[in-house]
Amino acid sequence: MPRETVDPRLSVGGERLASMGVVVDLPPGVPAPPALRNVSWLLADLDTGEVIAAKAAHARLLPASTLKTLTALTLIPRVDARRSYTATAADANADGTRVGLLPGQSYTGSQLFSALLMASGNDAAYALARAGGGLPATLSAMNEQARFLGAHDTVAKDPSGLDAPGQSSSAYDLALIGRAAMQLPEFRAYVTTRQIAFPGRPGKGGKRSTYVVSNHNRLLYNYEGTIGIKNGYTSAAKRTFISAVSRGGKRYILTEMHGLDPSWRAQAAMYDWAFRYGERATPVGSLVEPGTVTEPPALPSATTAAVPAPGSPAPPQAAGDVVALPALRSGSRWALSEAGLAPWVGFGGLGAAVLLVGVFATRAITRTTRRH
């Protein structure tokens, strides 16, 4: 059979990862991996980087708070965990989820990283960005870090992961980012901590008051061997997740984007399958090593085709065609019903957008301004 032509922009880690369907190579008698209710996912060996199975691995989607993993990876070497940093009113008034920073109160770098990774505090993200050299410098460093990892589907526009025009990542990139972050001992400590006492307002008699901050990763409490990493949610991104589990000398990493199942049990089922059958699967790709693919692959010559109007069939696409997609509008968020069209960002939706337009053309897109 002739080899399928794929766009090199979508094939970092192996040409099979350019597929928009489930990709897995199993011997006879091994069942397929369990279904996940999401747009894209990737399962890989955390140590070797071998990709065991994936679905739409390079689809560019909104990362929500899983982007905080890249924020932490970038800033842990730059922000002293023992030094104190004073929160500002701008930090405290962050949109979405907050840990509860108080303007004028000091927090150690360690406390801010705990708030960022355990409680997904957007206020902590902005405080850390300031401590790391300011918001523009932090975003520049995050994007430079993504390029170094080979995460070319990733564009960071907000260190908290809140939806921002042009911001994107992919299941493949989240696996690269999560794998790199797990090399840092400090990161591993933050994401496996279940609860900490966090500074609050001074109590009676000037006594320092604290309150409990808990880790939002429910897999950590419910699935044996969980070693991280970070969950996320916005009404447009839906549920996003990077998780990692260690058991019996094997470690796997699982990433998901635009998930529609709020339960931890779906991830647990995938890990059950991985620990039982993962070593019998032939890898379908690999997570590239940091520093080996620092520039995106060269683009082929391309033409631009318009996205069909809802209800109309998608026209045939030639190899290398680029699909023009609606840009995210500044100040708005697009939320999708369970059957909604995924919010592809940039040219990373090539092929996937054509497929999804054809499959989901009749499904409704609703507009919302909710953010979490």
Rank of each mutant, 00 (worst) to 15 (best):
P2W: 12
S11Q: 10
S11K: 08
S19Q: 11
G21F: 13
G21W: 15
V22F: 08
V23T: 12
V24C: 06
D25F: 14
D25T: 14
P28W: 11
P28V: 10
P28N: 08
V30I: 11
V30T: 03
P31Y: 09
P31T: 06
A32I: 13
P33M: 04
R37N: 09
S40Y: 10
W41G: 03
E50T: 15
A56I: 13
R60D: 00
R60Y: 03
L61M: 06
A64R: 01
T66P: 01
L67Y: 01
L67N: 00
K68E: 00
A72M: 01
P77Y: 10
P77N: 09
P77Q: 12
R78Q: 05
V79M: 00
A81H: 09
R83T: 09
R83Q: 10
S84T: 02
T88G: 05
N93W: 15
D95Q: 13
G100Q: 09
L101E: 02
L102R: 12
Q105Y: 10
Y107Q: 01
T108W: 08
Q111M: 06
Q111L: 01
F113E: 00
F113K: 06
A119S: 07
G121S: 00
A125V: 02
A125E: 00
L128H: 04
A131K: 03
G134I: 05
P136M: 03
A137C: 09
L139C: 02
Q145V: 14
F148I: 03
A151E: 03
D153Y: 11
K157S: 05
P159Q: 00
D163F: 06
A164D: 00
A164T: 02
A164K: 02
Q167K: 04
Q167T: 00
S168E: 01
S170Y: 10
A171S: 05
A171G: 01
Y172E: 05
Q183C: 09
L184Q: 02
F187W: 10
Y190F: 08
R194Y: 12
Q195T: 14
A197N: 14
A197W: 15
F198M: 03
K204A: 15
S209F: 15
S214A: 09
N215S: 04
E224R: 11
G225L: 10
I229V: 12
N231L: 04
N231Q: 08
N231C: 04
T234K: 03
R239C: 09
M257C: 12
L260W: 15
W264N: 05
M270I: 10
Y271K: 08
W273V: 06
A274K: 07
F275N: 06
F275S: 06
Y277M: 15
R280C: 07
A281E: 07
P283Q: 14
S286A: 12
S286N: 13
G291C: 09
T292W: 15
A302P: 07
T303H: 13
T304E: 14
V307D: 05
V307M: 04
V307Q: 05
P315R: 15
Q317R: 14
D321L: 07
L328Q: 03
R329N: 07
A335K: 08
L336V: 08
S337R: 11
A339L: 14
W344H: 06
V345K: 02
G348H: 06
G349M: 01
G351F: 13
G351Q: 11
A352V: 09
A353F: 11
R363L: 12
T366R: 08
T368P: 02
R370F: 15
